[in-house]
Design a protein around this nucleic acid. Structure first.
Lengths: 339, 339
DNA sequence: CCCATTAGCCCAATCGATTGGGCGAAAACC
DNA sequence: GGTTTTCGCCCAATCGATTGGGCTAATGGG
């Protein structure tokens, strides 16, 4: 029983062994064989005594020591653009739940979508000897993923995907298509897209899904009707301003709720009424969408499930299985902003 | 050079020592004495050779081994109600920054403000042998904090405070006072408060600050004008409905932006125009406040600084210093919702 | 020139848990 | 009854880094 700075006294395997008059290794074996009788490790009676004492003393193995010996930390690194983004925070909630069930603890770090930070955070995580990574901020065209593969770091992507890597995402192409179908049905013929950052597969796929479907419906949409932007409200506002300078669409599709909210602000400033003069559809169905004065139509993506799925995929990657990309189905929530 | 499951080959102290033909302990001492010449540990020449090789090989000490030996993990546990709450996510961002500077890594877990989860998450963190905790979800009247103190777990509170414990918070009383002054100045005389959860010091303090100042200004406010509620939009909406059933205030103070947004929704449903018929003021000045169709007045709390301060306080607690509560000053941002 | 000091480094124990290999004793088998 | 299994457990090495205590040779002082 040593006094640990944090957590007061800690019981060690040896403490238990001494108290029972047996060898630490025996205790270890007993506590590991989940089966009733530790196969060959100890008698049923001893096993029971060990388990009993362990419970009574509140024994919990030292992860440092275990990790040192077994070379597995049961630590999972999670990198996201930023946690103050509701979408990523929700996915992280899913991760936390599933990880806890599997006995994993998770580190999260914000990369702010900055390549330098991505590398730096990755290095910090690896220095901590995480068993692997869940990467929520993958940039298309970055070499980071290849490097990680080369270094044999197990990882899965989440939120954004990249060709050739396992990932848990929303089916963003389908999401874009749903919006195209919806706006077309409502009779819109002149539309613009606030497309997000071109390095993110979410932006690319949602936009591509929308544009391709729109064209295949017979619609007309020029490349100049697609405006790339940041994902936040300010970015959405700016993009909408750009769009309104060039033309006057009857509908806007923003690949992100925050951008959509920014766009709604811009429309208002131009004296246009959302839902009446111009339809707006967002993406992710964050909790705010429904609460806006003019409730925002939005594609609901299963964020919590995406997080959970990411952990499950990760588990399988660790087991050496070959894992494909998983795309979870979104649904469209139609509200006043696009009736 | 062993092959680690994650991270490929890892260089150990012994690897470096072998390659240089010296003893691992010497390498260790050199790498630790930050001073140019390792005082007595090695010659300047040797020290340089060691540092050079360490850099070349990309040596990074195994935290497991270090922690095992030194009994310090440089791990910091952070518990928050939920990360998908923009306020807590932002504070966490501050924590992450400061912690990284001090060489700490942080775990975050969501307690969902559920007492059972609070204990469970705390236990998980302690089982991981964190050096201490930053607690962002303290409940007034809970015995958890006393227990932690009894177990000698170093911790500081953040966001919410509790008498007798070190904490980094916003000066919520002052925040409430600012709102009272503002609304009184604007000529409001009939006001209601959407007060939040009574177990949170944030809710209590903001409400108390407001009510006390209001009365000292000569205002009249009954206990029934203070409605306790959840912190989210739905909670704010319900609270506003309750208020509107009883009376018709000319101003509402919600202790949280999300609750304020919910309240704005309720007002709208009642045919009331925010800012014209009823003034609304929120708290925290989350990034959405300014983006709403009718921009929301809100008390801006220094969330990032609160997170950073929490880490600094924690550092001092670890050093055994006696630490007081720190309350950072908020400012009021007046917008259209309360002109 | 001798002794004390110090620079420069090595030795070995230690942190807590895991794990392959033993080693007696009891039980089973022929 | 003798031999082979099996049971029940112990031994000791190991993971990687830290740290108090040596030990040797060179340096300095007198």
């Amino acid at each position: 029983m040593k006094d640990n700075g944090a957590g007061g006294q800690t019981v060690t395997l040896k403490d238990l062994a001494d108290e029972l008059g047996i060898h630490p290794s025996t205790v270890s074996r007993v506590l590991h064989s989940s089966s009733e009788v530790a196969k060959g490790a100890a008698s049923a009676a001893t096993a029971e005594r060990v388990r009993e004492l362990a419970r009574k003393r509140g024994y919990s193995p030292d992860p440092q020591a275990t990790g040192l010996r077994t070379r597995r930390t049961r630590l999972l690194g999670v990198i996201v653009p930023r946690l103050s983004d509701l979408v990523l925070a929700t996915m992280y909630e899913g991760i936390e739940q599933s990880a806890a069930e599997l006995g994993y603890s998770t580190f999260v770090m914000n990369s702010l979508d900055d390549p330098g930070e991505q590398r730096r955070k990755t290095d910090i995580m690896l220095a901590r000897r995480v068993d692997g990574l869940i990467i929520g901020d993958a940039h298309l065209g970055s070499s980071l993923l290849q490097e990680l593969t080369a270094r044999k770091v197990p990882f899965v992507l989440m939120n954004r995907r990249a060709r050739g890597y396992p990932s848990a995402t929303c089916d963003d192409v389908l999401g874009g298509e749903l919006v195209a179908d919806h706006l077309w049905d409502k009779g819109h013929r002149k539309v613009s897209v606030i497309a997000g950052e071109p390095y993110a597969s979410t932006a690319i796929d949602r936009t591509a899904g929308f544009v391709d479907r729109w064209r295949s419906l017979g619609g007309d949409i020029a490349d100049s009707d697609v405006v790339w932007s940041r994902f936040d409200t300010a970015g959405g506002r700016e993009a909408a301003e750009t769009i309104l300078m060039n033309c006057k669409p009857t509908a806007l599709f923003a690949v992100n709720d925050f951008a959509a909210i920014g766009a709604m602000g811009a429309l208002r400033s131009h004296g246009l009424t959302v839902g009446l003069d111009v339809a707006v559809v967002g993406f992710n169905d964050t909790s705010l969408a429904a609460e806006l004065p003019i409730p925002l139509s939005s594609v609901r993506s299963p964020m919590l499930d995406i997080g959970r799925t990411a952990v499950q995929l990760f588990q399988r990657v660790l087991n050496g299985e070959r894992v494909e990309a998983v795309a979870l189905k979104p649904t469209l929530c139609v509200r006043e902003s696009s009736v």
